[in-house]
Simulated scan of single mutants.
Amino acid sequence: MTKVHVFARDHINTDEIIPARHLTTYDEAELAKYAMEDYDKNFVRRVEQGDIIIAGADFGCGSSREHAVWALRGAGVSAVIAPNFARIYYRNSINNGFLALECDGIVEAFQDGDDADLDLAGGTIKNNRTGQVLKFVPVPQFALDVQKAGGWLEYMKAHSQAEVEAETLDAHSTEAGHGHAGHSS
């Protein structure tokens, strides 16, 4: 089973995920020490390998730093599930082989510390405390392939230029505005 950490607020930005004062390294283990530090100082003491973050809408907004993905992955987080993501965070997640899953109603369905079963193939997450099952937006095959390869660079090494250029990513978070206030979509 997997434990969830609920950060219910919308618009958690990359500086809250990994504060700028710690961007002196690319080492995930070092960055992990400060993951979510400005939001929850005790997060890194509670998180365990394979845990999931559940967050509010527009997770990862702000600057485009890949460090936000690296810090969470380094801390042991296996996925972030939110109603939607800032586009650059979503893309950085895919490029780094990290799961950013979109699921309406996710924040309301879980409490901090709940156990969950994540079924990537089935596109569901189950709250084992309540029995509630939610469906998330299917992960594009391309993103799964990049994750399996260990990230975009590893994926590119294993595929020809023509194969890479033929790939597409068509997901809710890649659409302009993705339903946020102030946008027409």
Rank of each mutant, 00 (worst) to 15 (best):
D15W: 09
E30W: 01
G150F: 06
G177P: 08
W70A: 12
H180S: 13
K33S: 06
D104L: 01
D170M: 05
L31D: 13
H183S: 14
A158H: 10
R46K: 14
E154N: 15
G182I: 09
H11I: 02
C61F: 01
E175Q: 08
H22T: 03
Q161K: 14
A68Q: 05
G56C: 05
G122E: 12
A75V: 02
P140G: 12
S160T: 15
V80K: 03
A109I: 08
V107G: 08
I52W: 04
H67W: 00
F43K: 07
A75Q: 08
D117S: 11
A29K: 14
K157H: 12
V6R: 07
G76F: 05
T14C: 07
E165M: 09
R21M: 14
S63K: 05
R91Y: 07
L101M: 06
A79D: 08
T124M: 04
N13H: 12
W70N: 00
T24S: 10
Q132P: 01
I52D: 04
I54D: 06
L134E: 13
F98S: 01
R129Q: 13
D114C: 03
G56F: 01
E102P: 01
E37R: 02
A75F: 09
W152F: 15
G150I: 01
Y89T: 08
I17S: 07
Q49P: 03
G56W: 08
P83Q: 07
T168R: 15
K33A: 10
D104T: 01
E175L: 00
I88T: 08
A79H: 11
Y89E: 10
L169S: 11
T124L: 04
K148W: 03
R21N: 11
K135A: 14
Y89P: 09
M1E: 11
G123N: 12
S63G: 11
E102D: 10
V133I: 15
A79E: 04
K135F: 01
R46D: 11
I94S: 10
L144T: 02
W152S: 11
P19N: 15
V137W: 08
G62C: 11
G177N: 07
D114N: 11
L120D: 05
D10K: 06
V164Y: 09
D15G: 10
R9N: 10
E16R: 15
V4N: 12
N95V: 03
G179A: 01
N95H: 13
G97V: 04
I52E: 02
G131V: 02
L153R: 14
F85H: 07
G76D: 12
S78R: 10
C103H: 12
D27C: 09
L169Y: 11
N92T: 01
T124K: 08
F85V: 07
V107S: 09
A20Y: 02
G74T: 03
V77D: 04
A55I: 05
H22W: 12
R9A: 14
K126G: 03
